[in-house]
């Protein structure tokens, strides 16, 4: 069908005196057609009970240590502040904060309070939820370059209070925070970013 035939030199690999396997035709040259195995199933095969299956729901749960850098970042969010760090070796100011510079491989000690505003680096208008469920009202994820950082340094967050058609790369946006009493020290303490 597709010409994927192979020329097989059986004799070369065979040890002296070995017996060819019963189901393999022997001979110095063996032409064998490539097979592309596999049995596609449809949803119907499951509904009609044509195939058996077993299910399992894992009970996996984690409590990740935030450590020093992200721990302080989250504390800042709780206080309504956006914190970054500056590496004195490469003179970069970055967010999210980190305990060491991945380029210079040096510890970072200098903390910087950044503006809670920035510029849309890129965005999407997403009609699909994380688990592939279709959405009527789209989610608006964006990478937002935060003011006060080095060029092209941003965070992933969401946009809000904006007509999706009006969103542009380069648009200036500002964080909309949850009320102080509702903040828990999480990235979601910022509800979204809205156009300035």
């Amino acid at each position: 069908m597709n010409g994927l035939e192979t020329t097989r030199k059986e004799t070369k690999l065979k040890k002296k005196g070995s017996v060819p396997q019963a189901n393999v035709p022997s001979g110095p040259l063996l032409k064998r057609k490539m097979a592309f195995e596999g049995t596609p199933l449809s949803g119907k095969d499951f509904e009609q009970g044509k195939v058996l299956f077993t299910t399992y729901k894992p009970k996996l749960a984690y409590a990740w240590d935030t450590g020093r850098a992200i721990g302080r970042y989250l504390q800042g969010l709780k206080e309504g502040r956006l914190l970054g760090v500056r590496c004195r070796h490469c003179d970069r100011t970055v967010i999210p904060p980190r305990a060491f510079c991945e380029r210079c491989f040096r510890p970072i000690e200098e903390w910087v309070q950044l503006q809670d505003r920035g510029v849309i680096n890129t965005f999407s208008i997403s009609y699909v939820r994380w688990d592939a469920v279709r959405l009527e009202k789209p989610t608006l994820p964006a990478v937002i370059d935060i003011e006060g950082t080095s060029p092209r340094v941003g965070i992933l967050h969401l946009l809000g209070e904006v007509d999706p058609k009006q969103i542009k790369v380069g648009m200036k946006v500002k964080a909309v925070w949850k009320a102080a009493s509702e903040r828990i020290g999480a990235i979601t303490d910022i509800q979204y970013f809205k156009p300035e």
Binding site: W64, D65, G67, R68, I70, G71, A99, F100, F105
Partner: peptide, 18 residues
Amino acid sequence: SPEVSYREMIYEAAVKAY
């Protein structure tokens, strides 16, 4: 090791090895 993130913990081992 609640005082460090995995990144910070590994960084310490790497710095020592270098």
